[in-house]
């Protein structure tokens, strides 16, 4: 558990300790970071993605208005 407490004022005007962020700060690392399309592993994945993500061109959905 983090010991990252912030001092805040509650509705009664009393000072209270509030638990702050507990996540570990950091930046993603590694080659190819951000290359989201690599999450699509095979042809089925790719075609499913195209038919949903690019649905107005390659899916069943027509244009909305």
């Amino acid at each position: 558990m983090s010991d990252n407490f912030e001092k805040k004022e509650n509705y009664a005007g009393e000072h209270v300790d509030v638990l702050g962020a507990t996540y570990e700060e950091g930046k993603p690392t590694g080659k190819g970071i951000g290359r989201w399309a690599h999450k699509l592993e095979d042809k089925d994945d790719i075609l499913y993605y195209l038919r949903t993500a690019e649905r107005y061109w390659y899916g069943q959905e027509g244009e909305k208005s």
């Binding site: 989201w36 999450k39 993605y49 949903t52 993500a53 690019e54």
Partner: peptide
């Protein structure tokens, strides 16, 4: 394509 992904994610860009 990346804008589409960033705004909607992999499930439904």
């Amino acid at each position: 394509e990346t804008v589409n992904y960033l705004l909607g994610g992999l499930f439904r860009a």
